[in-house]
Amino acid sequence: MDSYRSYGDAELVDLLKSGDEAAFSQIYKRHWHPLYHHAIKMVKDEDEATDVVQEVFTALWSKSEHIKLNSSLSYYLHSCVRNYVLNLFNREKIRTNYLDNLQHTLNKGSSFTDETLMRKELSTIIEYQISLLPEKMRKVFELSRNSHLSHKEISMELAISEETVKKQIYNALKILRLKLTSLFSVVLTLFFYLFFHF
């Protein structure tokens, strides 16, 4: 392990592409702090910056065999952090715009009588959050929600136990509730009733 300290980034990347965990560990140790400081300058929050860097390294490992560097590893990783943060900012902009529109509707004294419109707006945001679920969990959830398959049918379709199906659906709903709470706060209960009425 100590021998990896003497390797340059290019050598470590070559080893990483072959699934070398020690190479990944050395890259992590070498670049974590610079990336963290880069992230915190952008997001101004320690926990958020930590999450950003962790996501970047998770992606680096999961996609290691497909990495193609046109510049230094440091530049590549800093670009990944910047792009991830920009995506966060875009999501925040979407959230803010949605809440502004919702507040405007409430200020006008409108009630939620136009259920079709509300479903359409809500559906767009929920579908986006569903797309962010882990692949296996998302597949189970969509088979239950979109294809209306029973736990047993999903179990047979994906060759997993019914208990796993139940757990994946439970976890998916838990994740979605947590994420959507920050988006909809007070109106969350009503929206879940309208959209997730199993």
Score class of each variant (00 low, 15 high):
187 V>C: 10
77 L>A: 03
107 N>M: 11
77 L>G: 01
18 S>A: 14
56 V>Y: 06
185 S>L: 09
33 H>P: 07
113 T>A: 07
93 K>I: 04
98 Y>P: 08
9 D>C: 00
72 S>D: 15
157 E>C: 05
150 S>D: 02
73 L>R: 01
25 S>A: 10
163 E>T: 11
21 E>T: 05
139 K>F: 14
124 T>K: 15
126 I>H: 14
184 F>P: 02
62 S>Y: 11
108 K>C: 06
36 Y>A: 04
110 S>V: 07
107 N>K: 14
45 D>G: 02
113 T>N: 06
194 L>T: 03
151 H>W: 14
165 V>M: 01
165 V>P: 01
195 F>G: 08
25 S>P: 04
195 F>A: 10
198 F>I: 11
97 N>R: 13
112 F>V: 04
185 S>F: 12
194 L>Y: 02
91 R>E: 15
1 M>W: 09
145 R>D: 12
84 Y>G: 12
97 N>E: 13
102 L>R: 08
74 S>D: 11
122 L>G: 15
85 V>C: 03
25 S>M: 09
2 D>K: 12
96 T>E: 15
101 N>C: 02
114 D>P: 01
106 L>T: 04
35 L>S: 00
74 S>V: 11
54 Q>Y: 06
14 D>F: 07
143 L>M: 02
121 E>S: 12
175 I>W: 01
25 S>Q: 07
194 L>K: 05
4 Y>H: 04
25 S>R: 15
148 H>T: 08
116 T>I: 06
63 K>C: 06
170 Y>E: 01
94 I>H: 13
71 S>K: 09
27 I>S: 07
27 I>H: 13
162 E>T: 04
116 T>V: 11
38 H>P: 14
37 H>F: 13
21 E>W: 03
90 N>H: 14
86 L>A: 02
76 Y>I: 04
29 K>G: 11
20 D>F: 06
152 K>C: 08
86 L>F: 12
62 S>G: 14
155 S>Q: 00
35 L>Q: 00
184 F>R: 02
144 S>D: 10
92 E>R: 03
17 K>M: 05
169 I>E: 08
152 K>M: 09
153 E>K: 10
176 L>G: 00
28 Y>H: 06
38 H>V: 08
167 K>T: 13
